[in-house]
Amino acid sequence: MNNNTSKTIGIFNRSDLILIIVIIVSSILFITLSPNPSHSHQAKVTIGKEESFLIDLSIDQIKHYDTPHGEITLEVINGQIRMQKSSCPDQLCVRQGFLQEHEASIVCIPNETVIEWVSSPQYDGVSR
């Protein structure tokens, strides 16, 4: 280990504090510079890398899909969308509940599924 630990401030030394400040500043920059998710009447659902489609949020519906590693059930109710059921072990996507306005997406890693707001009109038609 380095001998520079003599210059400590609390439990951190000077380099630690610089690292912490760099992390905080870059996080804040990242948050302020990233575009806000827009809220339309549609959500984009991506399953695996290839399959992606739009879901109309103005119609209440329940939909089942097969994924590369299992299956999922989406529920649309009152213009909101959530992962109602998922075959994944951790159930993080189900616990997240309805996709909130400030949230970018609901992600289910085991099922390789992403539910996100459809991006704002100026980006419409851009495909990956």
């Binding site: 439990i11 912490i20 992390i23 905080i24 870059s26 996080s27 804040i28 990242f30 948050i31 990233s34 998710p37 991506t46 890398k49 970018a104 997406s105 992600v107 890693i109 390789e112 599924t113 992403v114 996100e116 990956r128």
Partner: peptide
Amino acid sequence: AYLLIGSTSLFNFLPFLWLASIPFGSVTGL
């Protein structure tokens, strides 16, 4: 996760995870 799923919306989590790494990293370091 991005390589697997290919959705850039994943990166919205990144700053929050970075911020969380400060207290969580300190605890494990301690």
